[in-house]
C-alpha cells in the first residue's frame, strides 16, 4: 500500500527540531519521578521480606511446633498451640464459607445470562462485603456468637474468618468457572444434558483446580487476619481441649508478643510472621499463575 514511502530515507533536518528546554525538562523530570516512586514502593516489600526472613529464621526450631509458649524471660518454648488454633479456626471458617462461596460463584458464572438484575445486585453486595473492615466483622461475630454463648471460643473466631473468606471464594470461583472454554458447555448441552448436569459434571470438574486455588487464597488471607480474632477467639497459653473456649492463633500471638518488652517473645513474633508470610506468599504466587490476575 505504502510503496511511495521510503523508510530508509532519513527525515530531513529541517523537519525535526529539539524540544524547547521547558518541555524537555518537564518530560525528563516526570519520567524520573515515576521511576523513583515505583522504586520507593518496592522498598517496603523487600524490607519486610528481608527482616522477617532474617529475624524469623533464627527463632525457628522444631520446638516451635511441639511446645507451649514459655513464660517471658525463660528461654525456649514454642507456639504449637497457636499453630493448632490457627488451623482449627481456619478449618471451621472453610467449612462454613466454602459451600456458600462456591455455590454463589457458580450462580454468578453459570446463571448470569438469565438473571441479569439479580446477578448485578449479588456482585455488588459481594464487593461491598469485601470492603467491610475486618475489625467490624470481629464486632459482628462478637455480637452474634460471643454474646449469645457468653464465652470467647474457636467457633466465634472461625465464624468471623468465614465471613472474611466469603467474598474471596465467590470471586475466585466465578473467575475459575469463566476460564472454562465456552465450547465445553455447548458440547455438554448439545449431548442433551441440562444446565445442572452440565455445571456439576463438566464445568465444575474442569474448573476444580482454579476453585481449590481460590479457597487456598482465602485460607491464606484468613490465617493472617488478626483483628477479627482479638475479641472472638481471644488467646490462650494452653493446648486446645475443647472448641468452645478461648483459642490461640498465630496472628494474635504476633500482636501480643510484638507489643511486649521481652526480646525472646519478640523473636517468637518474628518466627510466627515468617510462617505466615511463607504461607501467604506461596499461595499468592500459585494463584497468580492459575488466574493470571489479582484478587
Amino acid at each position: 500500500m505504502t510503496t511511495s514511502l521510503r523508510p530508509e530515507q532519513p527525515v530531513s533536518d529541517d523537519l525535526t527540531s529539539p524540544l524547547e528546554p521547558g518541555r524537555a525538562l518537564f518530560t525528563t523530570s516526570m519520567t524520573t519521578l515515576s521511576v523513583v516512586f515505583t522504586f520507593f514502593a518496592i522498598i517496603p516489600l523487600f524490607s519486610v521480606l528481608i527482616y522477617v526472613l532474617i529475624q524469623g529464621f533464627t527463632s525457628l526450631s522444631p520446638d516451635i511446633f511441639t511446645k507451649l509458649p514459655a513464660p517471658a524471660g525463660t528461654p525456649g518454648g514454642g507456639f504449637g498451640n497457636a499453630i493448632q488454633g490457627t488451623l482449627l479456626m481456619v478449618g471451621i471458617a472453610a467449612l462454613i464459607s466454602v459451600p456458600f462461596g462456591v455455590l454463589s460463584g457458580i450462580f454468578l458464572s453459570e446463571y448470569a445470562r438469565d438473571d441479569r438484575g439479580i446477578i448485578e445486585v449479588i456482585r455488588f453486595g459481594v464487593n461491598v462485603l469485601a470492603g467491610v473492615p475486618s475489625i467490624v466483622i470481629g464486632v459482628f461475630a462478637y455480637g452474634v456468637v460471643v454474646l449469645s454463648t457468653k464465652t470467647f471460643s474457636a467457633y466465634a473466631g472461625g465464624f468471623a474468618l468465614a465471613i472474611l473468606m466469603l467474598p474471596i471464594i465467590v470471586r475466585t470461583t466465578e473467575e475459575a468457572l469463566k476460564l472454562v472454554p465456552w465450547e465445553l458447555r455447548l458440547g455438554s448441552l448439545g449431548l442433551g444434558a441440562d444446565r445442572f448436569n452440565t455445571t456439576a459434571r463438566v464445568i465444575v470438574p474442569a474448573a476444580l483446580p482454579g476453585i481449590i486455588t481460590g479457597v487456598m487464597l482465602a485460607v491464606s488471607r484468613a490465617a493472617g487476619e488478626t483483628a477479627p480474632l482479638l475479641f472472638t477467639a481471644l488467646f490462650s497459653q494452653y493446648w486446645i481441649d475443647k472448641v468452645g473456649q478461648p483459642t490461640a492463633s498465630l496472628a494474635v500471638l504476633i500482636f501480643n508478643y510484638a507489643t511486649t518488652p521481652y526480646a525472646d517473645l519478640q523473636r517468637k513474633a518474628w518466627g510466627a510472621s515468617l510462617l505466615l508470610l511463607i504461607l501467604v506468599l506461596a499461595i499468592s504466587i500459585i494463584s497468580r499463575y492459575v488466574f493470571r490476575r489479582r484478587f
Binding site: 519486610v48 522477617v52 475486618s134 493472617g224 488478626t226 504476633i254 510484638a258 510472621s273 508470610l277 501467604v280
Partner: peptide
Amino acid sequence: IPSVVYGL
C-alpha cells in the same frame, strides 16, 4: 502481607 506483620 498480613496487616499484623506490617505492624511488627
